[in-house]
């Protein structure tokens, strides 16, 4: 199966719909050398902060740099694991609590590569992509999300 080697957009405006994810899974049914998929879905959590309760996260990014970095990470993960496919989607703009903001999808012949690659991708995306989450609170306030 061919590996995708060109920089591509990972950003979607607003939340990532469950239908998008279902469709993405279905798209792999023709790739019959795949034996395992691994999927990570990030969901916006209704955190209780001292300043108020989180209603949504408003995501912004330094898009050009983020896409360059995402491409670099993607190449590194493809080089490290025997993957068939890799897909990354990250939200921009407002995503309400309970909605999905990150979709990472890896596929390989055998499960281990897909699972390990997915895990490493999520960690690197959170640590290395210039993306910021502004947590909108029920008190008309906001706080800037901190990744732990």
């Amino acid at each position: 199966m061919e590996k995708e080697r060109k920089p591509k957009n990972i950003f979607v405006q607003g939340s990532i719909s469950p239908e998008t994810i279902a469709k993405s899974i279905a798209n792999h049914s023709t790739k019959t050398d795949i034996g395992g998929h691994s999927i990570f879905l990030g969901q916006v959590r209704a955190d209780e902060k001292p300043e108020g309760k989180v209603l949504a996260i408003d995501y912004s990014a330094y898009e050009e740099m983020a896409l360059e970095k995402a491409f670099e990470i993607r190449e590194a993960i493809f080089a490290k694991y025997p993957l068939t496919c890799m897909h990354i989607y990250h939200s921009l703009g407002e995503v309400k609590v309970g909605e999905l903001c990150l979709f990472v999808f890896t596929s390989s012949k055998h499960r281990k590569a897909a699972m390990d690659a997915c895990d490493e991708l999520v960690e690197r995306i959170k640590a290395e992509l210039p993306v910021w989450g502004k947590e909108i609170l029920d008190t008309d306030n906001h706080v800037w999300k901190v990744n732990v």
Binding site: Y59, M65, H90, L102, I125
Partner: peptide, 10 residues
């Protein structure tokens, strides 16, 4: 030049 606060994507 870009001024980047700590990243908090995902």
């Amino acid at each position: 030049i870009a001024l980047l606060p700590p990243f908090s994507g995902g």
